[in-house]
Design a protein around this nucleic acid. Sequence first.
DNA 1: TATGAATGAGCCTTCATTCAT
DNA 2: AATGAATGAAGGCTCATTCAT
Lengths: 208, 208, 208, 208
Amino acid sequence: MNDGRSRRAESQRVYRKAALLTAAQEVFSERGYHATSITDIVTQASVARGTFYQYFDSKKEIFLELLASLISELQSSIVGVDQKEDAPPLEQQLIATVYRIFDVVSANRSITTIVFREAVGLDQDVDRLLQQFYGGLEHYIVTALAVGQGVGTVRPLHREVVANCIVGSMRQVAHRYLIDAQEEKFDAKHISEEIVQLTLHGVVTGQN
Amino acid sequence: MNDGRSRRAESQRVYRKAALLTAAQEVFSERGYHATSITDIVTQASVARGTFYQYFDSKKEIFLELLASLISELQSSIVGVDQKEDAPPLEQQLIATVYRIFDVVSANRSITTIVFREAVGLDQDVDRLLQQFYGGLEHYIVTALAVGQGVGTVRPLHREVVANCIVGSMRQVAHRYLIDAQEEKFDAKHISEEIVQLTLHGVVTGQN
Amino acid sequence: MNDGRSRRAESQRVYRKAALLTAAQEVFSERGYHATSITDIVTQASVARGTFYQYFDSKKEIFLELLASLISELQSSIVGVDQKEDAPPLEQQLIATVYRIFDVVSANRSITTIVFREAVGLDQDVDRLLQQFYGGLEHYIVTALAVGQGVGTVRPLHREVVANCIVGSMRQVAHRYLIDAQEEKFDAKHISEEIVQLTLHGVVTGQN
Amino acid sequence: MNDGRSRRAESQRVYRKAALLTAAQEVFSERGYHATSITDIVTQASVARGTFYQYFDSKKEIFLELLASLISELQSSIVGVDQKEDAPPLEQQLIATVYRIFDVVSANRSITTIVFREAVGLDQDVDRLLQQFYGGLEHYIVTALAVGQGVGTVRPLHREVVANCIVGSMRQVAHRYLIDAQEEKFDAKHISEEIVQLTLHGVVTGQN
DNA sequence: TATGAATGAGCCTTCATTCAT
DNA sequence: AATGAATGAAGGCTCATTCAT
């Protein structure tokens, strides 16, 4: 049955769904999740009210799909620490990862805006997804710290707490300089370095 | 007209208002701001619907009052850096401040929960209050860093970014260990130290 | 028991009731009947909410009392046609009555405003009072016309319809020149004459 | 997109709107404007609450639409005075106009009821519409009187006051015999003549 | 499959009235 | 008698979701 007709219909479906996702992303980031109505989304997408429900079960569902796609992109920014001999130094790997994450955040401003502003506590499913992501990030850092402690480059510390500090630093900085920032004078590279420098060496003079 | 009758009535008013604030705090933290209706609040407070409106203009208003009182408590936790000769070392002052903040957060779990979860982007007035608080905290840290740089104990760095990292660390840790934590095994003192240690000396071995 | 205390209390009661009536009249004419709340009345009268209900059963009740007093004043403006030999001519009597009515309307602008604007159809009791008044006025005119027909000065006509025309003329003119009028250039005397002239002789030339 | 489906939907919309207008007219005239709730209207129309808001913005809006349609019908009853040689006499033209107006009023009893009872002072937009209509009627009469004065058939008089008397006569008679009347023994033709006779010749004997 | 009219639960808010003090 | 806090019925309105076409 994969004749021209059904193929056309299928591509039509894909197209419609994408249009709805894009429209949702736009109005969500503009008005916020709660202030956005289904009407807003379908108006933006130029489809009928009922059509929405042929692609998504609810407002939450479409948001979840947007969030999942963002998180999936972010996940792929986080790669395990390369412990091979010829790998770049740990510091460089960390900076690169932080930078890649900021890059994704920056490239998806409209959806990250709403994630930062309203996603937390919005719904159990949403929370689970976010926890998964933040948990993964935390785990990545904890692992990196453990590796460092193994080879003696990282001092004794509460790995989990420190990992959370790093995650929190990234969230706050991303929020401040990517989301709220009116000015565009944000240099992701520089800030990534600053975060990693702080993490590795602290603020005290002469510690390197 | 300050006779017994009106004095009793006045104290009754204060009592009722407090009851509503407490009830609101409870249901807000349980269901979240948006999911909470005026009905939920008055049911929890065991008063009639109309009574709510004798004390508050709207849901936003009562939330704002809760938030303002939390922030006022937090504000008083942040004291300027003491630069006198006989003052305790900077590190101790920082730890003490972080700890005081955590203490307030911990003591006001139900309202901080909702603040952490939904307050951002909820409303312009709410945002202003939060920005004020976080701005104050950031400013406190920037000042402390500048002082350190002045006396040569703090290395060159982007003070604002670093300040945001520290604020973010505190938010994330507070959220993780105070709000989401099922387990009560949180040691605010220890975590305060860990944050400050990380901030001052980083994670790299032998830097002290 | 008519001692000083109770007499004082009694005069206090009368005073309070009058204050409420005056206050009600003021706010009714300012905001209209429906837009006026009990709160508006008691605020204007500077008494407590509950006090209102010690003097009146409801908003309708106090309005009814205001209306009754207006109507009673108007009633006394309408005196039977004097058929005695030495009485002034019918025409003069009619002009005088119309004028007296306009005078009362004019002197009670604040309450007549609301009567003209909202009283009709407001409530059965209110309607009954108004019908009574308008009926009385109609009856007065019908009688006058019958008298005129009896002595041959009034031509054959449908007395009731004509009476209603006259009542309607007075209502419309009063509304237009007393209530809605921004300008104060209204001459009640002149208009009374105009109405009676019209009624007696019509608009056609040379009919006198 | 003007296919069968949308055409059917469109006619359905028109039908529903008409049903709501009819229902509103019924309950308004039965209970009065203020005493009527949206619930009353939708109950009468047998549609859901929300449906109302697909067609009208508010109670005021639907009333305004009813009023506008009544006034538009009334407007077309008022035609300019025909001054041509072969035109029917002024008196006949006046009677015809009065009669046509009474006919419209009579045919729209339920909406005119509410207009007579509560429309004045109900709302600025409502007032404007009514003023427009009454103003138009007054203007028509003033013009007719001026014409009569021009050709010498109308005596000197205050045209505006007289015009208001005539408008008032019509209102009162319409109210009395069309709206309040339990009995159906109202002869619009006869009454129209009576009004015009009165207006032209007054009540005094032998003036023709 | 697309449509959009219809639905009705549920929200916020007002306000006349009651009642304990 | 005066007070004013408390009440709760009732109103207007929104909006996610359903369903006949």
